[in-house]
């Protein structure tokens, strides 16, 4: 957010800061989706990229799992490693038990859906992490919100809400304070942070790169030797931020899936917490 505020100070000196709308690369279709509008706008680049990511992931894993050989080839090995990573490192380790396999497809789909869409932000010309648009982040977080609440209700019935908000072993006179906190933290803050964490990191990274690009363009076009010279520093910083952003893209996909697994586990074993 600092990144958003900083350039505002420089407006008077002739630099026009990029707005969030500028982070849109040119839309594929001229009526492309815009921020802040509900059903207006149309089929934007971001939606096309989401569909593209689905095709990409599906194609890769279908090809990787098609041969089904006991001794895997390169592609099958890659696919198996990717699947095994989500299955074992996230699903088995977090959810555990005998029936973690039932939730592996959710985690697996989420991880690669988020990962590929994030990495789109680091690929030139695509250069847009799909989850920097809030609609997508809300959608995928909502899917998991409904999933783990549903799991809790299915497993424990209506008692689930009591199990989720009343911690065991707390003295009765503290409960009036604890219960509202638990309700807010579990059922309101949790899904909101789940979506905003993903959305904000993607948008921030995207904004920084956009901002750096705009700044360099401005500094070079001023004609001032000093600004042109220092633009090299900005370029260096931008590249460093770009690398950091690439790391965060992978990390956030992992964090998102990990949290989803933790929430599912929490709903499954609500009585044990």
């Amino acid at each position: 957010m600092i990144a958003l505020a900083l350039p505002a100070a420089t407006t008077e000196e002739g630099f026009v800061p990029p707005t969030i709308d500028d982070t849109h690369y040119r839309d594929i279709f001229p009526w492309g989706g815009e921020y802040g509008v509900w059903f207006e706008g149309g089929f934007g680049k971001q939606m096309l990229m989401i569909i593209f990511s689905v095709i990409l992931i599906a194609t890769f894993f279908l090809m990787a799992s098609r041969r089904n050989a006991l001794v895997p080839g390169k592609m099958q090995f890659l696919g198996e490693s990717a699947y095994g990573f989500v299955r074992n490192s996230i699903g088995k380790d977090i959810i555990g038990g005998r029936d973690f396999l039932r939730y592996v497809p959710w985690l697996f789909t989420a991880f690669f859906f988020v990962l590929v869409n994030n990495i789109f932000g680091a690929i030139p010309f695509l250069q847009l992490p799909s989850f920097s648009h809030p609609g997508s982040a809300y959608a995928i977080a909502a899917i998991f919100y409904l999933l783990w609440v549903g799991i809790g209700l299915k497993k424990h019935g209506l008692k689930y809400f009591k199990l989720a908000v009343v911690p065991s072993g707390v003295p009765w006179y503290i409960l009036p304070i604890v219960v509202p906190i638990e309700i807010i933290s579990n059922f309101i803050v949790r899904p909101v942070t789940h979506s905003l964490r993903l959305f904000a990191t993607m948008l921030a990274g995207h904004l920084i790169v956009t901002l750096a690009g705009t700044a360099i363009e401005y500094m070079v076009s001023t004609g001032s030797i000093l600004l042109q010279g220092t633009s090299v520093l900005v370029l260096g910083g931008a590249i460093a931020m770009y690398m950091l952003e690439a790391l965060i893209m992978v990390l956030q996909a992992y964090v998102f899936t990990l949290l989803a697994a933790i929430y599912i586990e929490g709903a499954l074993h609500a009585d044990a917490h």
Binding site: T19, I20, D21, G33, E34, Y35, G36, V37, W38, F39, G41, G42, F43, G44, Q46, M47, I50, I51, S53, V54, I57, A58, T109, A110, F112, F113, S130, H133, P134, G135, S136, Y138, A139, I140, I143, L203
Partner: peptide, 23 residues
Amino acid sequence: EGSSPLIPNLWELLVTVAGFAVL
């Protein structure tokens, strides 16, 4: 500036859910 980053485009939301479902 006319648009909030927090307000979702519902089409994007639907496309994401549909994409997730298909995948």
